[in-house]
């Protein structure tokens, strides 16, 4: 039986990494986004009031995953739109259509737990394990 989708944060001396897994690449992209959200907003309650759609292109699924996480970082840092939910609309090896749902940062209700500089390519993993898909991404903090 395929493992239930999920994520966990992994240790790195200077920074932090995430692992995500699921039945298919779309679930992995969703779980990786949830892992990143947990790092950026911590336990702050964020509502899905606004949404931001995007189409990303990449050389392979790994590059797309890094690009997707960097879009979430961009939205929260520059547009000050904190993420609540994510939707993966379409995904193949070179193209991702997805949506971030969230809301504008309100300092009285939200606290950004951490600034994430970027999702990196260091030891990047996005693979079919035969028992579902598995990804690993390190983040630069």
């Amino acid at each position: 039986m395929t493992r239930k989708a999920g994520f966990r944060l992994i240790e790195h001396t200077a920074d932090i990494g995430l692992e995500a897994w699921g039945a298919d690449p779309a679930q992995v992209f969703l779980q990786a986004a949830l892992a990143l959200k947990s790092i950026i907003v911590g336990n702050s309650p964020v509502r899905g009031r606004d949404s931001r759609s995007m189409t990303l292109e990449g050389e392979d699924a790994g590059e797309l995953l890094v690009a997707w996480l960097n879009e979430i970082i961009y939205a929260s840092e520059v547009l000050e739109m904190l993420p609540a939910h994510f939707r993966i609309r379409a995904l193949d090896d070179h193209r991702l259509q997805a949506e971030i749902e969230g809301e504008q940062l309100a300092p009285n209700r939200h606290r950004v737990a951490r600034e994430v500089k970027a999702a990196t390519y260091h030891q990047l993993l996005m693979e079919d394990t035969g028992d579902g898909w598995h990804a690993r991404v390190y983040l630069d903090l």
């Binding site: 050389e59 500089k117 990196t120 260091h122 990047l124 630069d140």
Partner: peptide, 27 residues
């Protein structure tokens, strides 16, 4: 600076392939 780095990592992935440079780590 973070964005300049991220932008050029993408450029350099393509460049490494174009110029036949083999990499032990994508970063």
């Amino acid at each position: 600076g973070y964005q300049v780095c991220d932008d050029f990592l993408k450029v350099m992935h393509k460049a490494a392939r174009k110029y036949g440079i083999s990499l032990p780590d994508r970063q």
